[in-house]
Design a protein around this nucleic acid. Sequence first.
DNA 1: GGGTTGACTGTTC
DNA 2: CGAACAGCCAACC
Length: 112
Amino acid sequence: MLRAMSYKLQDLTEFEQKILCVLRRVPRGKVTTYGELARAVGRPGAARAVGNVLHKNPDSPKVPCHRVVKNDGQLGGYAGGPKKKISLLKAEGVKVEDGRVVDFRNKFYRFK
DNA sequence: GGGTTGACTGTTC
DNA sequence: CGAACAGCCAACC
């Protein structure tokens, strides 16, 4: 039963660790969704939990939380504020319009 | 230790 | 297209 409990060593659950790890692989200039992350870690439908994780997660340079948007292309949220998120995304070449990622399906990064 | 909340999503009406 | 519902996982009270 310790197999799934060893995560306590870093304050992060396996769920969170996987999410951060996967999110870390998202190339610059692309975005992914909460649902895709959830599915990538083996918990499809746990998009809400993913959002919760990112919300409490410190903005690490290795963990670009700003590249995570809604499945619909909407920005979603950001601990630093939506403006900051937009700024970062635009700086990477991702166009954002009216709180929504332009041509987001094209920028969408799907894990396989 | 149980109930509520939240950076969500897909289905159904 | 918009509103309602039900799942999901961790944090909070």
